[in-house]
């Protein structure tokens, strides 16, 4: 099993407040890893550490995060984020851009302006995000006019366009209706063939459906990390069992 991201003794802080305590875990390549746990347990902070987005809001870390045996903190965060894409909880397409330009945004940020190069990538990514058939006739419409579920798939297509190796998803379906949620879950299932996916979710069924591995976080600590079926069927720790059985959280 190839390890994509290796996290060792990670502590994360916002200002002086310590929000993650000594997290160590290995994220395997081309698998989906679900991060579950009650609100405020540091799930979002954890995945933000993986593309250094926590720094944008004034966070800092100690410990080590290695991607392909390279220390993240030694990399340029701008270049890193092209390799580690992120999909947010609330769909955030660029409202002043068309659907096409939304997907092309990341490419343009990289200085690719040639439409002959961009157009096929946009089409490929929209197809990968299972949105192409719904939008192919109105690619020039504003991205803000789509439904919430479509917007989220647009954001996923936008993330795919920069050709990342890892995709981080911060509760990508929590603001969506059940049908859109199913679509996003199917999509994650497809995507993990080519990408390493780390998904934060509140929804335990979702974690069970889409992920290969599950990590259970509680108050800033990693309680248990294992194969998803094991976490849900026979967790090693009592706390995990209580949580997945719905006894707290």
């Amino acid at each position: 099993m190839d390890i994509k991201l290796s996290i060792k003794n990670l502590d994360a802080y916002y200002g002086k407040t310590k929000v993650l305590h000594n997290i160590s875990l290995d994220i395997p390549k081309n698998k989906a890893v679900a991060i579950i746990g009650p609100s405020g347990c540091g799930k979002s902070t954890f995945i933000r550490c993986l593309n250094r987005m926590h720094e944008v809001v004034g966070g800092s870390i100690t410990g080590s995060i290695m991607m392909d045996n390279e220390e993240l903190s030694k990399k340029d965060p701008v270049l890193l984020r092209k390799r580690v894409g992120m999909v947010f909880q609330k769909p955030n397409p660029f409202p002043t851009m068309s659907i096409f330009n939304n997907v092309a945004a990341g490419l343009r940020l990289n200085g690719i302006r040639n439409k002959k190069i961009i157009a096929p990538i946009v089409e490929k990514c929209l197809k990968q995000a299972a949105l192409w058939d719904e939008v192919k006739d109105n690619l020039d419409d504003s991205g803000a006019n789509l439904s919430g579920g479509q917007q989220q798939r647009l954001c996923i297509a936008r993330t795919l366009a920069v050709d990342p190796e890892v995709i981080l998803m911060d509760e990508p379906a929590s603001a969506l209706d059940p049908i859109s949620t199913t679509k996003i879950e199917d999509l994650i299932f497809e995507l993990k063939k080519d990408y390493t996916i780390v998904i934060v979710t509140h929804n335990m069924q979702q974690a069970a459906r889409v992920s290969d591995y599950t990590a259970f976080f509680y108050i800033g600590e990693l309680v248990e990390f294992d194969v998803t079926s094991k976490i849900f069927m026979s967790p090693a720790k009592k706390q995990t069992e209580d949580y997945v059985r719905g006894r707290f959280g």
Partner: peptide
């Protein structure tokens, strides 16, 4: 703020993300 995050997460520099915000 999510607009800035969206840009930064795509690998935008601070200046590029500001440009996107300015456009909005």
């Amino acid at each position: 703020y999510s607009q800035r995050e969206a840009a930064l997460a795509l690998g935008a520099t601070r200046w590029q993300s500001t440009l996107i915000v300015l456009k909005d």
